[in-house]
Design a protein around this nucleic acid. Sequence first.
DNA 1: AAATATTTTAATCATTTGATTAAAATATTT
DNA 2: AAATATTTTAATCAAATGATTAAAATATTT
Lengths: 209, 209
Amino acid sequence: MIIPLSSMAKAKHTISVSAEEKIREAARRVFMKKGYAATRTRDIAEEAGLNLALLNYYFRSKEKLFGIVMEERMKQFFGVITPLMYDTTTTLDRKIEMIVSNYVDMLLQNPDLPLFILNEIRHNSDLFNRFQAGRLIHGSHFVTQLKEKQPGIHPLHFVVSILGMTIFPFVAKPVLQSAGGINQQLFVAMMEERKTLVPKWAKAMIKMK
Amino acid sequence: MIIPLSSMAKAKHTISVSAEEKIREAARRVFMKKGYAATRTRDIAEEAGLNLALLNYYFRSKEKLFGIVMEERMKQFFGVITPLMYDTTTTLDRKIEMIVSNYVDMLLQNPDLPLFILNEIRHNSDLFNRFQAGRLIHGSHFVTQLKEKQPGIHPLHFVVSILGMTIFPFVAKPVLQSAGGINQQLFVAMMEERKTLVPKWAKAMIKMK
DNA sequence: AAATATTTTAATCATTTGATTAAAATATTT
DNA sequence: AAATATTTTAATCAAATGATTAAAATATTT
């Protein structure tokens, strides 16, 4: 009995998605919605419309499958900011605009992503350490640019503020909708507005005495 | 057999904490650290140094015990901002200073609180709806004050930005420490700095054309 | 002190859950 | 087409988990 563990060469010519892929996609949806601990492997099998044993046949264990999903999602979450952080051909102002705009666009499509990522990392910080992004912020060109404009303030203050203003609304979305009386349509409209508001504010902050 | 469910009158004169209270405190620590789904009732009993059956004797079920802990923690989390939101005797600028300062102080003592609250609410939004804070933001004096200064911008934009800049660093703490090279001591120092930075930035944002 | 009520414990239940197995079904190679 | 390899399934296992029970221990009242 050969165990594929998601790496066997597929000689399949089927048009439809492979069972392995169906499981990975189902796992992504269920893990993202419920988190690792609250997810049952049976939930994933059911979501994929396949037998439970296939999950272990292709991925060995719940934990290994989760690791694969988690790595994909971390790439998506940090992929928005990483290339821009190290870009040396773009002005600081333009970078800020792009970071905010790219994040809002991506998060409108994946509103559960930040809370999922940040919560799972908190419960297992190895997940993040195993990820490449060891020196994501520290030593980036973005940080250098910030330090030039405001040598007196730690550049991370600005990074945290920009990301906070951009990402936090999605983290707090359920509360905003209940306590703030914001429906889905208004939420989307406000996030679109923030694409121009947040960069404007951020630039002003960086120029401040 | 009488079932107390945390409401029996205590005729006890013992100096030490009651078993019921020990369990509630242990539950708070374990639930906050691991979240509802990952918490085993046995973890709580062990943390409290008491027999597992006592948990069900005093609180009927894991879910009921969690509900009690959750309500306490939501009061703490939203209690920082609620009174200030409705205060009509304080200037907008002063309110902003106090919101940020009070939150930073509280979160330095309870760094896991935001992620715990926001994540559990996401997985069971009834938890928040059952909570009183139905109209926490909408209709508050704080919102009125914001609307006066900037009629063109939805006041929630400012609320979200101020809370984002204040709370987000705690939500992203594990990532900041790994990717930003921030140790605990520097983190605390930076949060202290933000007590003056964030209000200064927020005021500038609100005054902007 | 005896009787009664309350608190705590050890043992046990019934389900749930991640994982395995052996066989059946399907595809691929010879 | 036969032989072989791969994929899928139903049945099952062992461990974990929330909860209960009956009895023991302790406190309170009479």
